[in-house]
Computed example of a mutant assay.
Amino acid sequence: MTKIIGNHDGKGGRNDTYDIGNRKNVRRPDAVREVKRGMHPDAHVVKINGREYVRDNPDTSKKDNVNRKK
């Protein structure tokens, strides 16, 4: 499983970029496209206020959430 970590670098702490595995600052539209293509099966896309974001699939662990602290 490739770790996806939100960078909280947008307005109000939104994720404009994500770190995906060893790739840093992957733009949100690119990360969303990868998830939609099935490249990250442990993640899904949510739409909030007309914008799509990457989220981890629900489980009981908080340590692997996209919005965990770095």
Results as ranks from 00 to 15, higher is better:
H40R: 06
N7Q: 14
R55G: 01
K63V: 05
N67H: 09
R14V: 09
R27Y: 10
V35I: 05
K70R: 10
G10R: 02
P41N: 11
D59K: 10
A31Q: 04
D64F: 05
N57I: 05
T2H: 12
D9H: 05
M39C: 10
K24I: 09
R68D: 09
K70T: 02
N7L: 10
G50S: 12
D30N: 11
K62Q: 10
G13R: 08
G12I: 01
K47H: 05
N22V: 12
N7T: 06
V46L: 13
R33K: 15
N67I: 02
K24F: 11
N25T: 03
R51E: 09
D16I: 02
V66L: 08
R51D: 07
I5L: 13
G38I: 04
D42K: 14
K62P: 02
K24L: 15
M39A: 14
N25G: 04
T17P: 01
K11H: 07
V26E: 07
T17E: 03
V66F: 04
I20P: 00
R33T: 06
P41T: 05
G50V: 08
I48Y: 14
G50H: 10
R55D: 06
E34N: 12
D59M: 13
K70I: 01
D30K: 07
S61Y: 05
R68A: 14
D19Q: 13
N65M: 10
I48C: 07
P29W: 13
R51N: 08
R37A: 15
